[in-house]
Design a binder for these strands. Sequence first.
DNA 1: CCGGGACCCTCCCCCCGGGAGAGGGTGCAG
DNA 2: CTGCACCCTCTCCCGGGGGGAGGGTCCCGG
Lengths: 265, 265
Amino acid sequence: MLAIGEFSRLTHLSVRTLRRYHDADLLVPATVDDTTGYRYYSADQIPSAQVIHRLRQLDVPLPDVQRILRSSDPATRASLVADHLQRLESELDRTRAAVVSLRRLLQPEPAPVHVELRAVAATSVAAVEDDVELDDVLSWYSGAMAELDAAVPEPAGAPGGLYDNSLFEVCQGHVLVYRPTVRPPSRGRVHPVTLPAVELAVTTHVGEHDDIDVTYGQVGAWVVANALAVAGPIRETYLVGPRDTPDRSAWRTEIGWPVFRVAVP
Amino acid sequence: MLAIGEFSRLTHLSVRTLRRYHDADLLVPATVDDTTGYRYYSADQIPSAQVIHRLRQLDVPLPDVQRILRSSDPATRASLVADHLQRLESELDRTRAAVVSLRRLLQPEPAPVHVELRAVAATSVAAVEDDVELDDVLSWYSGAMAELDAAVPEPAGAPGGLYDNSLFEVCQGHVLVYRPTVRPPSRGRVHPVTLPAVELAVTTHVGEHDDIDVTYGQVGAWVVANALAVAGPIRETYLVGPRDTPDRSAWRTEIGWPVFRVAVP
DNA sequence: CCGGGACCCTCCCCCCGGGAGAGGGTGCAG
DNA sequence: CTGCACCCTCTCCCGGGGGGAGGGTCCCGG
């Protein structure tokens, strides 16, 4: 039987942390003295402590650590760990993207953006729409677009999407993706929609979408500078995307903000 | 002039977060209405907000973000950013190491470790020693070892180190690295030391040091199981190390815990 | 058998960067 | 003038730990 201090030395976990793990039911001492409250650990708890240590180094949240330790089945365990590694991987992707974008932002002379005003007529499209969480947009998008592709064999233009403003404000909102076509079908989630005529502040974002918010910001600054106000969901048109070329620097996304002129006194 | 809500939409930073950044003097609104307290931002603050956003995505602490934004000189700014990227890189290394080690730990049958008791005679060595922070051990080690190598042309055995227990407890302690040699010189930090005779619980750690604490734990369990107690600093002997071969799986580190027999009633 | 020091206990506050909500004041348009 | 969206400040919460206060316990040496 090891007192908490000895166990701490053997596992390189601090005494405080061991006590917290006990409180969290994560690593319960082999014995606890009823009267004194002293915790006593057995030597065969060392491996558990080390697994916990490693998982925490990987930023696995304590509840997940608990689930991993509790699962007796090695397969379940492996899949839980794999899940987390997946998360780490995607986080790494985001980090990489942020680094690239930061480098661009910190360039002394950021490329100026062309924004123009364009009147767009009402368009008849085949669409899939839903209320979506911001985090789920990407996966929802790929599913919806696949369904659209299947339902619209002869599209009459580049695909696009309408994104509710609330998506960026409260991370949840209405999203609609579409392909323009002469005779929009109705099949599954796909149904005909007529996009209303609007006046758009339009610019084109070059490259992948990691730093598309920078372009958004530039459009926003332009809109404000020109005494306009935003009316309705943001439109994106995917002129060149992953379906067209794997070369990300060739991608072109048209960003359109519906605007109306604000009366200036 | 943009109210906080509009600015929030343009920058994809939440209203609450913008207020916090104001409180932290990180992103001060262009104007604040004295009577109402309303914050008003100007459109040219959007780039700053976006830089902050990117830096936060990279987990740069707010004070560092402030330093980066404040520094007008692009070179200083670039170096501050580079520093943080360096930190991210080393964190990534640690993550990779933890993944490898975790995989080893979760193997159904972890390789059992041979621990044996060995009496070691007093040894005359050339040594460099100091009180070191745990975080600095690696860099201190390489410096000390380089100095030792220069001062001991004909070593009489593998190099090693003595690591105070407090290093693992309070992350700060006495460290001594040595090379055994017949006639230890005294030059610079290098000086003769006679390592005392001890009885060691010895095992050999295979491979790189990322998961050496697992081996430590196994030694610890063995020591406890054999009714021994630890007396004095831990000894490591670098039988095969980076100086010998770049093949990490070939590295061999002998771990020795000075022990004495505990009276068992 | 006692004293002292190392060890252990619980409890509370702090850190960071953010989210949630209460409770109340403002700006603007119908 | 009234309603509603917007804004303000304030307090509390999270996770995963660190620091310290204040008090009990173990054990070894004298």
